[in-house]
Nucleic acid binder design. Structure first.
Lengths: 235, 235
DNA sequence: CGCGCCCTTGAGAGTAGTCAAGCTTTGTGG
DNA sequence: CCACAAAGCTTGACTACTCTCAAGGGCGCG
């Protein structure tokens, strides 16, 4: 086994989907995997495309967004290293339900439907992991439904920023920086508001010194103030 | 095997979770099942309760609703005969993420976590069914996120009514009647609006002759008008 | 240098929430 | 069986949050 394979196996072991698998199973999984490198701003797949594969992200960041028949767009989530994505449709209708765009240069692996089915059959742990992953996703999305249904724009933006910081943030000199580029439009499309409202809110927070943005990189300096906005009862 | 067991097995065979299982597997599943009858308006479980069981509804209707730390409430979904419910948490944190209320007298079955795990182990089809079920749920909830994020109240109510009609509707003399009681507050809590806005909209539609409500039973007479509202580009 | 993309900001309009009051239906206990 | 309480529904007036429309500025890239 060459250096390349060893490194690949390490990468695979870090995937949520493959957590707890023994080395020989990992090797089995690797044999069926297709590895791809994708440049920043490329489209990984389009909403409506098929046949679907099960994807996992080794390195980099991805934005998953969905558009309705009316053209309105929503950002569903951001994919971080280790995450599974684009794979739920394997068990439903076989078409990707959303677009996937590379926010950075990235490396992904994927498996075909039949290969994944066989792998799940041989290594039951993969199926269990899969259920846990989409179960947690379901709970997250349901929380988002509650937010959208009950909170105001500023509060939703606050919650979103907190989630992004906790999820995709790494500490820097000035605070916690979100690991991938984030446009105002992205923030709006996550929160179900307009570019304008998002811009106004973020600008206000920037002026208050709670965060800074340079070149689409957001750094949060004052978490606790944002937490206050997130938890505030609307007056 | 008595009459009772035979009827029970028929009921089980109709469950989504058990679709495609051979008779001997059904018998195995039945042996581990707990059957309960629950009266209208009773609470089946509370948000935060544990340990969770996997539930399926034989007969009747259930409302699943979630409340946030701020007290705001959202109706997550309605459970119909054959549906699986309250079981995702088995694979995540082990506590029910929402409340379940009986909208009618009903019959439900449930399995403990360990029993379900063993059943899935013995009958792989159960695991596959489970993945398909929560996968479809995930897509539904994501569509709801898009609706909440991009559409106005009236449009969301229209979509909701259409979904309820297609899902829980049965034809009657005057139109299609939704099979379970539906309060104005329920409609509001599904759509992320207030009781007042929901009331105004439904009353308006009632005056236009598109639907009628008697005793919390909603009958839709004019689907196409409502579809028009649902698809309308906002002027 | 010009074009495209992203961001900011102001003014005005309208959707939907809040507050308040009264009505109808349902359920319960005397 | 009636009466009253509780729960659900309707409606009006007012408020305000948020969107829409419009215009302009900054930055990077071809």
């Amino acid at each position: 086994m060459g250096m390349m394979d060893a490194r690949t196996n390490d990468s695979l072991a870090a995937l949520q989907l493959l957590k707890g698998l023994p080395p020989d199973a990992l090797e089995d999984v690797r044999a069926a995997a297709r590895i791809r490198r994708v440049p920043r701003n490329a489209r990984l797949f389009n909403q409506g495309d098929g046949p679907v594969r099960a994807h996992a992200l080794i390195d980099g960041y991805i934005r998953i967004s969905q558009s309705g028949s009316d053209g309105a767009q929503v950002v569903m989530r951001f994919i971080r290293p280790g995450d599974l994505f684009g794979s739920v449709a394997l068990f439903t209708d076989g078409r990707y339900p959303a677009d996937a765009d590379a926010l950075t240069d990235l490396t992904e692996v994927s498996w075909s439907e039949t290969d994944l089915a066989q792998l799940m059959d041989r290594h039951h742990r993969i199926a269990t992991n899969f259920i846990g992953i989409i179960g947690r996703r379901l709970e997250e999305v349901q929380n988002r439904v509650r937010e959208l249904a009950t909170q105001r724009v500023e509060q939703r933006i606050a919650h979103t920023m907190l989630r992004l910081v906790r999820h995709g943030g790494h500490p820097t000199a000035d605070g916690i920086t979100i690991a991938f580029p984030l446009r105002r439009k992205d923030i709006a499309d996550i929160c179900g508001t307009t570019l304008h409202s998002a811009s106004r809110t973020i600008t206000r927070w920037e002026k208050a010194g709670w965060l800074t943005t340079r070149d689409q990189r957001v750094t949060v300096c004052n978490l606790s103030e944002i937490e206050l906005v997130a938890e505030a009862d609307q007056p």
